[in-house]
Simulated scan of single mutants.
Amino acid sequence: MKFALHGVSVWHSNAVTQLRIARETGYTGLELLPEHLFRYLDNGGSYAGYRQLMEKYQITITCLNALKRIGRHQPEERATMLQEAEKLCRAAVELGCPVVQIMALTELDSLPEARRNAILRENISAIADIGKPLGIRFQIEVVAFTAFNSLQQALEIIRQTGKDNVGVVIDFWHLHAGGNTRPDEVAAMDPSLIYGVHFCDGRAARPGEAWDEWVQRNYAPGEGDVDIPAWVSAVRATGYDGVWSPELLSPRNWEHDLWDIAAGCLDSMKACDLH
């Protein structure tokens, strides 16, 4: 089992500081946001320099999170999306990172299910083919407030693509708030299809309330409606022994000391007997 600090949890920081925070608060990995990485590179940083810092702090990059809006299907938009995939894969290779996260947002929600699934199959297959020769795997995150929001939908797309470098991330909030996945479905999974776990809390949108992650996820572990012990038990029942990353998407908590945020996130996982 490996613990990776999630870049979202320390949103108001930079890619360099995140390595130091991770090291000093007890993690061995970092789930890095591309916007943090590319901001560093655009302002004088280099991959070589970042690798030196990774070595200094003994932190590996476990995932680049994420390639978003993978349902883009109009020719120019799709070409741009695939260019973004290539850029992220090149970055992953530079940092020795094995996994890139991919996710659809609401770009496909107005389409019939069959058309939506056909686009996802085609695009995910193309993304997988970009990463395959580079040794890069892709974890699908289903998103609670979209039409593509259940574990079974993701697993069926993976089955249909037939790509052996595509799996899922088990994100507690997205699966809970999406309302279409039960912990026992996770417990029945082949662990080889789980590429990561996002340990997090929150709630679903209330009746009449617009979806807004900065509202519905503004909870530290134990404060929201997610049955965290049930999801932890489900993942552990599979035999999965990979990366666990606490994802604290919480504007209220983001204003705390960055080191305290990271340490508190790790403590919340250890309180669930993760070690």
Rank of each mutant, 00 (worst) to 15 (best):
A4V: 12
V8L: 14
S9H: 07
H12C: 10
N14S: 03
T17S: 13
I21F: 13
G29D: 12
E31Y: 04
L32M: 15
E35L: 13
Y40E: 06
L41C: 10
G45I: 04
I59E: 09
T62E: 11
I70S: 03
E77V: 02
A79Q: 10
A85L: 02
C89M: 02
A91L: 04
V93I: 06
C97R: 03
V100R: 09
I102S: 01
M103F: 00
L108P: 03
D109S: 03
D109Y: 01
S110F: 06
L111T: 11
R121M: 10
I124Y: 05
I136M: 09
R137Q: 11
Q139S: 14
E141R: 07
V143F: 09
F148G: 00
A154Q: 03
V166C: 05
A177R: 05
I194T: 11
H198D: 10
H198R: 06
A204I: 08
R206H: 11
R206V: 10
P207K: 13
A210V: 08
A210Y: 09
D212Q: 05
W214N: 06
G224M: 07
V226F: 00
I228D: 01
I228F: 00
A230T: 12
A230E: 11
W231S: 07
S233A: 14
S233T: 09
S233E: 12
A234F: 13
R236H: 08
P246E: 10
L248C: 12
L249G: 05
L249Y: 10
P251K: 03
W254Y: 11
E255S: 14
E255A: 15
D257R: 09
L258E: 14
D260S: 10
C265K: 03
C265A: 13
A271W: 01
D273M: 07
